[in-house]
Design a protein around this nucleic acid. Structure first.
Lengths: 345, 345
DNA sequence: CTGAAAGCGCTTACAG
DNA sequence: CTGAAAGCGCTTACAG
């Protein structure tokens, strides 16, 4: 178990070190006999090639980075992230890449991280979670480094970089259309932060659904949230006096907060206000009903992000690639159907 | 911004490449003038040393790994992890180490990961989240690799490896003593999985508290949970018929589940059953009271784990080091005080 | 304090 | 199919 080198293996197998290298790297032109002998020795010795030496010689580290900017770290407790990480790590394992994880919890962290990202010989490419105005700078600086990269979430300037995202407009639209189909007309929305593309897009889905069904847009029925539970709670408090029949919350976490606000005023879901969420996170805290929501394929998003990045690393970063995954409505029991007089006529 | 090498910098600064290397590595014996000239060139050119070359030459990668075993990945959504990661990444940033993240979501993942951990030239050391029977094998195999490592959470065989942990016995004890002090005598417990050291230790704290205060131990008042919300919910359902005056839940997440079970039977906290949790995660879903709990310094735990690991890397892994952080009772409003006849006499 | 040189352990044209 | 050799870009005794 001491530190064997290629040379040692070559000697024991009676071949040159080039040959050993070739069998390790699955080079096609190797005689079966040579291959067999080398493999035998490798098995017996438990030889592992030195990663740094490989990286230096091949100019490829097989490490990709994941950067979570400062402003994302506030939301890091959101269930979205474990799923994203699951997808990312799964793909990394499958493709034999190592994931370097950069979480910035402060501005200084961000600087620290930034000084390391473009280091030659460390990363082959990088994934950035983004889509928030606060990330503009970090994405820009990353682009400047010329390192292969893909943004997870639609960035504000999508032309300048490759990204993967969920179709948030379609997701918002399908959620609201579901409510419309059930007969609701006075539909409110708790948006995500309008500093983020996800927040903007889901709201646009809401607006499109209203428009296509000739429903009037009432600004008083739209309250901005921030994807957090307390944000949803406060937004719903402001929404209740407006007497919405139904509400679309742009995230499940906000929906939970919204439900709390309703309960405090003895309002029930869906009898008093129907509710649709977004994300489809496992919700164990709901006892009276199951939340109808829009499923985001987050694990898949992580997988695709990695696959795309590796593709860019191998085949060049131009032209930029954009991959959009479709979310899906998951109907459960938080919407009921509309029973207002108006619709019963 | 092209790929400059040490040699290029040396040429431009009019010194040898050894000298440039020395100023980069803060070697003491360098003349001020040479240092100045080199730094100047580095600044102007934005030169970054090649990480792989440094690793190969110095036999030190400045990368540490974090391994979350298969059985931990089920709990990865637990708020514990974001905090742990925050601490770990903070310390990595501060000490200029890069974190490689290995999340096993299946047995095959674990194998994949394992084949990479001991790779020479990749990691200087590794952190393993553990303390569960299911991790015995992974910890053992890691120990065999001889790579510097520290376990986060007390492992089952603490003599064989360095670890950092929170004093879970003390934490459990302080929680239960708080209830005793408030006059409760019939105190139940929802334990963590008894396959885990954290689960066992917190239960031991409960037992010690009872014993030291001469309270009888009633097995019917102890139900095993699994650190999840549904686990807490089910455990509380079984506990309610036993009429406990107070319950100690070994995690806040389980406490949330327990509260749901109580609500369904129109029981209130703390009037019907007082409740103490463990972890001190931000709980936004509680409206009627604030959960009294035991604060675990998880961020600090992550920081200490990294610092300890780097110490081991630099100064040798023997003897094994064990670091225990103290948790702290956080009194809020979920305990009230006991009003049973018995105690009022 | 500084430089020349060996060495870290691989990969990969180049010849054959 | 295979080997000798150059090269990847650093660090670090060794001399001076």
């Amino acid at each position: 178990m001491s530190h064997l080198t290629l040379e040692d293996i070559a000697k024991r197998a009676g071949v040159s070190r080039s040959t050993v290298s070739r069998v390790i790297n699955n080079h096609p032109s190797i005689s079966d006999s040579a291959k067999e002998r080398v493999l035998e020795v490798i098995n017996v010795t438990g030889y592992q090639p030195n990663a740094a030496a490989r990286t230096l010689a091949s100019q490829r580290s097989h490490i990709i980075g994941l950067v979570l900017p400062h402003s994302a770290s506030a939301l890091f407790a959101d269930p979205y992230y474990p799923y994203l990480l699951k997808g990312i790590t799964r793909a990394c394992n499958a493709l034999d890449f190592t994931l370097a994880f950069f979480l910035a919890s402060s501005r200084e962290d961000e600087e620290q991280i930034f000084s390391r990202i473009p280091n030659r010989g460390l990363l082959d490419g990088v994934l950035v979670q983004s889509g928030h105005h606060g990330h503009l700078e970090i994405v820009d600086r990353l682009i400047e480094t010329q390192i292969p990269q893909v943004v997870v979430g639609r960035p504000f300037f999508p032309e300048t970089v490759s990204f993967v995202d969920v179709d948030n407009v379609a997701g918002g639209k399908v959620a609201v259309e579901h409510l419309i189909r059930l007969g609701y007309r006075r539909i409110g929305m708790i948006t995500g932060p309008l500093q983020s593309t996800a927040g903007i897009d889901r709201q646009n889905g809401y607006l499109q659904a209203l428009e296509e069904h000739n429903l009037p847009f009432d600004p008083a029925l739209v309250v901005e949230g921030d994807f957090t539970d307390p944000g949803g709670y406060q937004a719903m408090q402001r929404l209740i006096p407006q007497k919405p029949e139904a509400v679309f919350a742009a995230s499940d976490v906000m929906a939970i907060g919204a439900i709390r606000a309703m309960k405090e005023q003895d309002l029930c879901v869906p009898e008093d206000i129907a509710l649709v969420g977004f994300d489809d996170i496992p919700l164990t805290t709901l006892t009276n009903f199951q939340l109808t929501t829009v499923h985001q394929p987050v694990v898949e998003l992580g997988v695709r992000a990695v696959e795309l990045l590796i593709d860019l690393i191998r085949n060049g970063t131009e032209p930029h690639r954009h991959e959009i995954l479709m979310p899906e409505l998951v109907v459960r029991s938080s919407c009921g159907y509309c029973v207002t007089k108006e619709n019963q006529l």
